[in-house]
C-alpha cells in the first residue's frame, strides 16, 4: 500500500487571524503609567493627649484655608514663593534664633565626616474646604524644595545630581541628610469661611 502523504494545512490565513487578534489588543491596550506624589502617612497615635513637643522655632507652619489662600509662618503667602521659603527655612543658618536649630550628624559613609543638619519640620495644615488641586500644588512645591535640597547635597558630596545616583548606600546617605519632613497635622477646621 502506498504511503499517504498527510495533507498540508494551508497557513495562508494565519496572518489574517493574527492580525485580527493584534488589532484587538492594540485597541484595548492603555499605556498610561500611573504617576503621583508618594507620601507616608504618620502611624496612628494610641494616645492623642500625648503630644510630641517640637520647639516653635523648628516648625514652619503652612496653613491653607477654604478659599485656597496660604498662610506661611503667620503671614499671607503665595504658591510662587513657597518653595524658596521652605528651602530658606530648612537651610543651615548658624546662630540665628529665627531659624531652626542645627545638629551635628556624623556620617560614616562619608568617612566619619560631621555634617550640619537642620532640625526643621514643615507642618502642613489644611481646611476641610480646601480644594484638592490646591493641596497637591502645595505638596508639589514642598516636594520640589526637598528635591532641590537633595540635589544640592548630592552635588556637594558626590558631584552628581540626586536623580543620577545609582549606589543604594549613597541614596540612603542623602535621604538621611535631607529627610522629607513634612508633617500633616491632625485634621481640624481652621476656618476661612465656607
Amino acid at each position: 500500500m502506498a504511503k499517504r502523504k498527510a495533507p498540508e494545512i494551508n497557513a495562508g490565513s494565519m496572518a489574517d487571524i493574527a492580525f485580527l487578534l493584534l488589532i484587538f489588543f492594540l485597541v484595548t491596550t492603555t499605556m498610561d503609567i500611573d504617576t503621583g506624589i508618594t507620601r507616608k502617612l504618620p502611624p496612628p497615635i494610641d494616645n492623642p493627649d500625648e503630644n510630641i513637643d517640637v520647639k516653635d522655632r523648628n516648625v514652619l507652619k503652612i496653613l491653607v484655608n477654604s478659599h485656597d489662600m496660604l498662610l506661611v509662618d503667620g503671614k499671607p503667602g503665595s504658591i510662587s514663593t513657597l518653595k524658596d521659603k521652605a528651602k530658606d527655612f530648612m537651610a543651615i543658618h548658624p546662630n540665628d534664633p529665627k531659624y531652626p536649630e542645627i545638629k551635628d550628624v556624623e556620617v560614616e559613609e562619608l568617612g566619619g565626616r560631621i555634617v550640619k543638619a537642620s532640625k526643621g519640620v514643615i507642618s502642613l495644615k489644611n481646611d476641610r474646604g480646601t480644594s484638592y488641586g490646591m493641596y497637591i500644588r502645595v505638596q508639589n512645591e514642598l516636594a520640589r524644595a526637598f528635591n532641590e535640597m537633595k540635589d544640592e547635597a548630592s552635588m556637594l558630596y558626590y558631584g552628581v545630581k540626586y536623580t543620577q545616583l545609582v549606589d543604594e548606600t549613597k541614596i540612603e546617605v542623602i535621604n538621611d541628610l535631607v529627610p522629607v519632613r513634612v508633617s500633616e497635622a491632625e485634621p481640624e477646621d481652621i476656618g476661612g469661611g465656607n
Binding site: 504617576t35 503621583g36 508618594t38 507620601r39 507616608k40 502617612l41 504618620p42 496612628p44 505638596q139 500633616e184
Partner: peptide, 18 residues
Amino acid sequence: KQELRKSNALKINYSTKK
C-alpha cells in the same frame, strides 16, 4: 486618609498628571 491611617495602610500616592 484618617481611615487609612487607622487601618495601617500608610503608604499612599496622590495620583497626578506629570
